[in-house]
């Protein structure tokens, strides 16, 4: 496949993604961890000795909000909209009557959404980290934790967006499916004992984070959401990365395959 059609779809879609009203709403949502970090840091500085350790708070923000809520929500709404918006708004006619393959169209739109979401999620996470660790920026382990958190969030965004792109290509109510999947499957089954938890994407994402059993850097997992850190059978990091890459490729490939074969009818 030539890169030129992919890049032209990417550029056009990136502009549309940046401009949409949905984007403005989700930018506001993605700022929430930063606001949370500011509040917690003020609280910590106001009562020294009583507040939580900055890194422990950050790990809870990453686990409890960014990974298990923000990434899921953003991927769901942006992934499903890749096809659904074009069909619902009846704009699919325009790209469908251009010399661009359907594969290039889906991949270009997917890449535009993912790159925007990565900027949103990773920026919010880094800013939260800098606020919460403002007094301990020289602590090396904290930076290592940040790096691994960004990797988990990045892989989560890429993989979930691919899954929801696929859902959007063939399901009429893809948002409903996505909500059930995110909050009824991923957020529940990941806590099942044994190998059942490996049927969730979240399991592999959590496997990328360090010190799940014992907390990080001496924080011993004392965060408010400690129960979320429980992990019964972690997958080795390399295996987790390979699994996530394969899942992403399969979801994106299937999305292209379905989109190339399906005809989309507009509601008249």
């Amino acid at each position: 496949m030539s890169m030129a059609p992919f890049l032209s779809v990417y550029r056009f879609s990136a502009k549309i993604v940046r401009r949409s009203k949905r984007t403005k709403v989700f930018i506001a949502v993605s700022v929430l961890p930063v606001i949370l970090a500011v509040v917690l840091q003020i609280n910590r500085l106001a009562s020294p000795g009583r507040g939580l350790d900055g890194l422990a708070v950050f790990s809870n923000v990453v686990m409890g909000f960014c990974l298990q809520f923000l990434v899921l929500l953003l991927s769901l709404f942006f992934g499903t909209s890749i096809t659904a918006d074009e069909v619902d708004n009846k704009t699919l006619t325009y790209p469908a009557t251009r010399p661009v393959s359907k594969t290039a169209f889906i991949l270009g739109k997917y890449a535009a959404s993912v790159s925007f979401l990565l900027v949103l999620v990773l920026t919010s996470t880094v800013v939260s980290f800098l606020i919460l660790m403002a007094d301990r920026l020289s602590y090396g382990a904290a930076w290592a934790f940040l790096g691994k958190s960004l990797a988990a969030l990045g892989f989560g965004t890429i993989c979930y967006t691919a899954l929801f792109t696929l859902a959007g290509t063939f399901l009429k109510k893809s948002i409903l499916f996505g909500l059930f999947f995110c909050f009824g499957w991923e957020n529940v089954v990941q806590y099942f004992p044994g190998t059942t938890q490996k049927f969730t994407i979240m399991h592999y994402l959590k496997s990328l984070l360090p010190g799940m059993e014992a907390g990080v850097g001496g924080t011993e997992g004392t965060g408010l959401l400690k129960f979320l850190l429980f992990r019964q059978e972690p997958t080795p990091v390399v295996t987790a990365v390979i699994t996530l890459v394969i899942l992403t490729a399969v979801f994106a490939g299937l999305a292209c395959w379905v989109f190339s074969r399906k005809e989309y009818l507009f509601d008249e």
């Binding site: 059609p5 032209s8 779809v9 550029r11 056009f12 502009k15 549309i16 401009r19 949409s20 009203k21 325009y94 790209p95 251009r98 010399p99 661009v100």
Partner: peptide
């Protein structure tokens, strides 16, 4: 949410 020029330029880019 695009301008007329952006709409047209985007589609010409696809060509």
């Amino acid at each position: 949410d695009t301008t007329g020029r952006e709409f047209l330029s985007g589609l010409l880019g696809l060509s």
